[in-house]
Write a protein that binds this DNA or RNA. Structure first.
Lengths: 172, 172
DNA sequence: TCTCCCATGTAATATGTTACATGATTGT
DNA sequence: ACAATCATGTAACATATTACATGGGAGA
């Protein structure tokens, strides 16, 4: 993708996780290029200005795998989780399922803790306590439901096969 | 609250919005103090080390109101929304309801856009598209449901009355 | 012509984290 | 004695935003 397209596809989820500015996106792409983790190709098109289309390299794929398989993220926020979802095609089948199960366990913990907290807040807590806790509980429950149905649906799907072509890793 | 307590109460939602480090939290409190937006009181207790308990001042309350009533946040992320929820007691009754209705309209827009996107992604999109879109849709639906039930429940609740005592604004 | 969207980029500035330091108290 | 939790803080470093600059193409 191009930097502009990356921002656009993230923008779609900006209400959930925000979206980076060009001032951080473009320099990040330049850094990846410098480290040979991606390649660029200037694509000129009629009717529209030319774009710089980036592709991930083999070394980039390895770095991505490492990032994905980094030890249990105790801090793992919803934002990080959505970012990993965007990279689903870079997961091996078992890895993706394990990742979702990890998230499930983590959110389940939080859900239990919030339910506990809601009980005490209902008696002594202020309005802001009740609102924030109730909101968190609702989101956690929704995420658990989605994770369960997705974990149920995923194994039936054929996962992408990794295709290496020259220096670039193509995914289909 | 003390800085330590602020972090703890945010930590409870770290899976949703993350939680700031002490290296940013403490300097922030010092800056607020410098601007006379908060006051400190060192509270020594038996059995535990002393804490610096911060309270918001009248000027701080005004600054907070301004921040809360800032123009439509086009970027408004879930994180910002949860932060506002934590400050619910600083909203006047009508303001809080208007804020929730604002969020509802915004999430409803995103929900509609995602539903549109899911249809095309089901045909031509990759796995990561379907996963991220489906996840976003599930969260959006849950948030809409929570907003609706909360907007229905809120008017029946008595909202906190603002109490000013000396230089500090106390909320009950 | 003017404005909007596309598309990329840089530099000053703001903001954040990481790693360290301090010290009291509680439990083992 | 030792580790863990409570509690605060600073400095070096990493990362992000904001504001600007550039330029092509589309439509009013």
């Amino acid at each position: 993708m191009s930097g502009y397209d990356i921002k656009r596809s993230l923008q779609r989820f900006s209400w959930l996780i925000g979206s980076p500015s060009f001032g951080s996106l473009y320099p990040a792409l330049h850094a990846l290029l410098e480290d040979n983790l991606v390649t660029v190709e200037v694509v000129s098109r009629e009717d529209k200005p030319p774009r710089k289309v980036y592709s991930i390299t083999e070394a980039g794929g390895r770095a991505l795998q490492e990032w994905i398989n980094r030890p249990v993220e105790t801090d793992a926020s919803l934002k990080t989780f959505v970012m990993c979802l965007f990279l689903a095609s870079s997961f091996p089948q078992a890895g993706l399922i394990a990742h979702l199960q990890n998230r499930r366990a983590q959110v389940a913990d939080q859900h239990a803790a919030l339910e506990q907290a809601v009980e005490t807040a209902d008696k002594e807590g202020g309005l802001e306590q009740r609102l924030a806790l109730g909101y968190g509980l609702a989101i956690a429950a929704a995420e658990l439901a989605w994770l369960d149905s997705t974990l149920d649906w995923l194994p039936q799907q054929s996962l992408p096969v990794e295709v290496v072509q020259g220096d670039n890793v193509l995914l289909r």
